[in-house]
């Protein structure tokens, strides 16, 4: 038998080719198994990035799901601030604030108040744009902003970080719910989908 018959004829007996049926199926099984393991791994990865913990404030009448492992803080002049303890160099954070609205208070008044306060508190604070939009079927106002985050501690040599943020202002009867997202500018786009999931879980 010539060498070129070897392996070219699919009917060649198994013992002649050196590969048994077990060998062939085994190779396929290994490949399938690997694909399955990788698929499972990717699903685990995907699920972990959307894992959330619930947060509820009865006082403010809101509930929301925020990313697992984030720190919550209710001690500031906000309802809650959630921040990613691992994010570097700026801690990505979501802040929920409730502002009372009077009969003559407009959305613009609330946003101007935010701008004035932040201009006093934050370095190089700039409002980038303000636009009306609908989030999860609710009409809201979105304000994009940027500032420079610098550590006030003189013994800490942290480079100032350019931070981008978004405020979503939702009118709810006689109050405005402001949901703020702030992230290191370089990670902003990457972090945005998680924030959008966070926003969509808001109940009030």
């Amino acid at each position: 038998m010539s060498q070129d018959l070897w392996g070219t004829d699919s009917d060649l007996p198994e013992i002649g080719s050196g590969l048994t049926k077990n060998d062939r199926f085994s190779a396929i099984l290994v490949a399938l198994l690997t694909v399955a393991a990788l698929g499972l791994g990717l699903i685990t990865k995907q699920r972990s990035s959307t894992d959330t913990w619930p947060y509820e404030s009865r006082e403010a009448g809101i509930s929301i799901n925020y990313p697992t492992g984030w720190l919550t803080d209710e001690r500031g002049d906000y309802v809650v601030r959630m921040r990613d303890p691992k994010a570097r160099p700026f801690k990505t954070q979501y802040i929920i604030t409730i502002v009372p609205m009077g009969g003559q208070t407009s959305t613009r008044n609330v946003l101007d108040g935010l701008t004035l306060q932040r201009s006093a508190d934050l370095s190089a604070y700039r409002v980038l744009n303000v636009q009306e939009m609908t989030v999860s079927g609710v009409k809201s106002t979105k304000m994009s902003f940027a500032f420079v985050d610098a550590d006030p501690n003189p013994f800490i040599q942290r480079l100032p970080v350019a931070v981008m943020g978004i405020d979503f202002l939702i009118l709810d009867e006689n109050r405005a719910i402001i949901v703020t997202f702030m992230s290191d500018k370089q990670m902003f786009e990457e972090n945005l989908p998680t924030f959008e999931r966070f926003m969509s879980s808001l109940r009030y």
């Binding site: 290994v30 690997t34 393991a37 990788l38 990865k45 697992t68 691992k86």
Partner: peptide, 29 residues
């Protein structure tokens, strides 16, 4: 897969799963 970023930021159990399912199987295969 951006495994390094995920592994570096996820929980211990996910890190174990990720290491076996993604790292382990990729390297071994």
């Amino acid at each position: 897969v951006n495994l390094d970023i995920w592994i570096g930021s996820t929980t211990a159990s996910n890190r174990l799963m990720g290491n076996i399912l993604l790292n382990g199987f990729t390297h071994t295969f």
